[in-house]
Every structure is written in structure tokens, then in C-alpha cells.
Design a protein around this nucleic acid. Structure first.
Lengths: 253, 253
DNA sequence: CATGACACACTAGTATACAAGTGTGCAAGA
DNA sequence: TCTTGCACACTTGTATACTAGTGTGTCATG
């Protein structure tokens, strides 16, 4: 009953070499399963509406249901799966009516990021941005779509980092998952990537010129194209979509 | 092995009255524990650094460790507790260096919300806002601090709702938890609440006048005061704070 | 043949048991 | 007195067993 007397484990053993992780960690098994499933869902390797069974996953990973369940609960919080108690668990369908809000939120977040980035960017940071733009062009030239997508994400991540608010990009990532899933379904229109790179370059130029207003305008214009492309493949694909459901962050209420 | 053939449970029994929840639900026990603990932590009824033991919680709630553990995992994702495997779980200390970013993010989100609200607000919606302002004044006059805080939150929630982006406020709530915890520690300076109400009124007026730019300016000014008040009680309180740690949304990487 | 009730197989939710570490405290030795 | 090593009590992580509810298929019944 004297548990309250202990201050914290990290503050122990003053001189001992801290081999243990000083940051709070998470069970490795759960995290692995979570990341794998999340990647599968976003990459559409698991299709919307597809059932997910804890027992099967547990067997395929060679672990018990417990870590699988913990991973599924996180995915449920992210809005990527839907758990119906005593019934079943399914890959979430894409909530079409939540996509505009997601784009607006992302624009708000990244607009702020790029504005601050344009105020604070050093020359070396601008150089890193330019290097990333070159990488994007190389990936496009090589036809490596996944590689371009990765470089694209890194571009946006770099801007948040330059702004001094790296957590901002984490939030944006969290918000844009359904939009990403939707875009997986639409064909990469010919010349689209080159256009995106041009927009990225324009943003980077505005940052280099220390013009926060222009940078934010260009970023907003870039991201708004996500919105205009939304009702595009609606007819082409079947029942992967739904009109109901809330944004993932609405778990409190 | 014909599991993939089943489309979805919600689509069953065409004519049967849908007594079951059509939306994916969450286990009741876990949710109750989660909400209680979350409220306790934000309200500083559980102090930063304080140990949390799954077994004790399970006994006090009269349930097993499993639902307790699930609630704790969610809180860990929120950044409200820190789990050290095989060692212990503790209420998260307030990450001081993450607070400015949280305020910036909240400002970005709510600035966007109020801008859209000013463009779309109907007369009745403005009236609801005004009613809420009156409620705030009543709470202040009655000295009901918690009541005012609740009305305050509702004011911001209403704006997001008017903007047509209710999920935006959910995100803002998620981001501002640590700032809220911090502000619990600082005394409510005399006359502060009246000042806040005045700022709220100014925002509402700008919305009523359909002036998006002015509304966003006033909201930004309102929220920026959170930032200026940050290094205020630093000396007054002990070791509730830390300089490390990341924003809660950085769980992917 | 249509319809309804009902049982059964399957799901997730919960409880319990066990495993794998961690940190404290004590005791033996220099 | 200080250091060092070890053992034990305690934590969370994982596995397994059991509970509770759902949906489907089947079979009796009109």
C-alpha cells in the first residue's frame, strides 16, 4: 500500500548505465501487427468491408488473440476498422462525406506549417527540400509510383519539421488516411505526378523566398486539388464507400 | 472457410426492426473506465507521475484486468499515461515543450472553423451562439467555474458545428489535453473569465457580421493568450512537468 | 411452397492463469 | 561503512479458458 511513494522508474539507480528504454515503449508484438494491418488497409490490400477475424490473425501471426485484439482496438480508434461486438470486425468502408472535412483539416494544418516554415527556414533546410524535389522527379522518371508517394510524404513531413512543429504532420497523417485510401482507387492520371511536383516546387520556392503568405496560398491550392478530384471514381468502383460514419478523432463525446 | 462470402452484419434481415446498434460500438466496460480515467487525469484528480496499477483499477471497478488494460492502452495513445513494460504505468507529466505546438495546432484548426462558420452561419445559429454567451455570463456571475468551462467548450464546439466540420473540434479537443491540464494548475486570475467572455463575444459578433477574416483574427488572438500564459506557474509547482516527449498523435512513424 | 421458430456455429468480450521482466531491499563480504 | 551480488515481490505482456450475444441455416408447420 506504499505504492504512491515511488516517484518513477526512470529516476532510479543514479549511476547505473541506462540500458533500458527511458521512453515509454509499447509491446512489440502488438505494434508489429498494428503497423502491418494499417499498411495493408491503407494500401487497399485489405478491401473495405472485408471481414477480419481475431482468431485467424492470431494463428497467422503465431500469437494469441490478446496482442491481435490490442492492435485491432487501435485500428478501430483510427477509424480503419469497425468492430461489431459479438458479431464481427470489418475493414472500414471509405466515408465519402468525411473526406471534404479531412481535406479542410489537412489544409489548415499544413497551411500553418508552411507559413511557419517560410518564416524560419534556413538555407540548409531549403537545400534539403530541393534535394527531396529532385528525388520526386527521379521517382517519377523511373515510374516508381510507391517511391514517389514516399518522397511526397517526406516533402510534407520536412515542411512541418522546418516549421518546428513535427507533431503537426503526425496529425495530418492521422486525418488523411481515408483520403489516401480513396486515392488508391483512382488511376494516377497521366502527367498528374509532374503537376504535383510542379506545385511542390512552387511551395518550396515560396519558402526559399521567405514569403509565408504565398507559401500558404500555394500549399492550399495544392491540397485543394484533392478535394476537386473526389467525386471522380465514384461510379467506377462498387460498394467500398459509405455516407455515414464520423471522422476518426470523434471517439470522445 | 466461406467467411469471405458474408457482406456485412448490418445488411441482414431486411424487414426486421433494427434494435441492434447499426454503428460499430465499443465495449461498455472499457469505455466507462477510459472516460473516468481520462476525466480524472485532465481534472488533475490524478497527478502527473502518479502510478497506475492495472490490478488495483480492476479490483476497484470489480472487473478483470482485460478491460482495464484496454482503457489504459487508449489513454497511452492519447499521451495521457506512460506505460513502461514489466515495470509500471504512470500518469503522464505535462510536456512543456509540446504546449506551444498544441496551441498553434489548435489555432490553425479553430481559425479555419470560425472562418467557415462566418461564411455559413444562419441567423438561428448565431442566436444559439448568443445564447451560449449568456450562459457563460451566468456561470461567471454564479462563480461556477466548472460550469463556465463547460460552456466555453460548448462555444468552440458550436462554431465547428456551424462551420459544418464537427470533427474538427474533436481533433482540437484531442490536441489541447495537455494545455488544459496545465491550465488547471494556474489560478484563474481575477477578471480573467470576463475577459474571455468579451473575446468570445467579439468572435460571435464577427460571425454575425459574416466577416471571416475578422472572425479568424479574433479567434487567433483569443487562443494566443493561452500561449502567453504558459511560463506562468512554472515555479509555483513541483515536478509535474517534463521537457521531453512527443505530441500524442506521433504514434505512427 | 412460403413462413416462422429454433438450434447451432461463430463472433467478440471478459476472466483467469502463466510468463517475462524490473527494481528494491537485504545480506554477505571487503 | 561502502560495495556488490542475489533473491524476491511486483509490474506489465501473453496465452488460454470461458461467457454472452449474433446471424444463419434448417426443419417443422401453415
Amino acid at each position: 500500500m506504499d505504492a504512491t511513494a515511488r516517484p518513477e522508474p526512470a529516476a532510479r539507480s543514479g549511476t547505473r548505465v541506462a540500458k533500458a528504454p527511458r521512453v515509454p515503449s509499447r509491446a512489440n508484438t502488438t505494434q508489429t501487427i498494428y503497423r502491418t494491418l494499417r499498411a495493408d488497409i491503407i494500401a487497399m490490400r485489405r478491401t473495405p468491408g472485408e471481414p477480419i477475424v481475431e482468431k485467424h490473425l492470431a494463428e497467422s501471426y503465431g500469437v494469441s488473440r490478446t496482442p491481435v485484439r490490442e492492435a485491432l482496438l487501435r485500428l478501430s480508434d483510427d477509424g480503419l476498422i469497425e468492430i461489431f461486438p459479438q458479431s464481427g470486425t470489418f475493414v472500414a468502408r471509405i466515408p465519402m462525406n468525411a473526406l471534404p472535412e479531412a481535406v479542410v483539416i489537412r489544409t489548415a494544418l499544413e497551411g500553418t506549417a508552411v507559413r511557419h516554415a517560410a518564416q524560419r527556414a534556413t538555407r540548409s533546410q531549403v537545400a534539403v527540400l530541393r534535394a527531396n524535389l529532385m528525388l520526386q522527379q527521379e521517382m517519377d522518371a523511373a515510374g516508381d509510383f510507391d517511391g514517389f508517394h514516399e518522397a511526397d510524404e517526406q516533402f510534407h513531413s520536412l515542411i512541418a519539421e522546418i516549421a518546428g512543429y513535427p507533431g503537426l504532420w503526425g496529425l495530418a497523417q492521422q486525418v488523411k488516411v481515408h483520403v489516401d485510401r480513396y486515392r488508391r482507387l483512382t488511376l494516377p492520371a497521366p502527367g498528374r505526378i509532374a503537376q504535383v511536383i510542379a506545385q511542390h516546387t512552387a511551395v518550396a520556392d515560396a519558402i526559399a523566398e521567405r514569403d509565408p503568405v504565398l507559401a500558404e496560398q500555394r500549399m492550399s491550392a495544392h491540397l485543394d486539388e484533392l478535394l476537386s478530384a473526389i467525386p471522380n471514381t465514384q461510379g467506377a468502383n462498387p460498394f467500398y464507400f459509405t455516407g455515414a460514419e464520423m471522422a476518426p478523432a470523434t471517439k470522445n463525446s
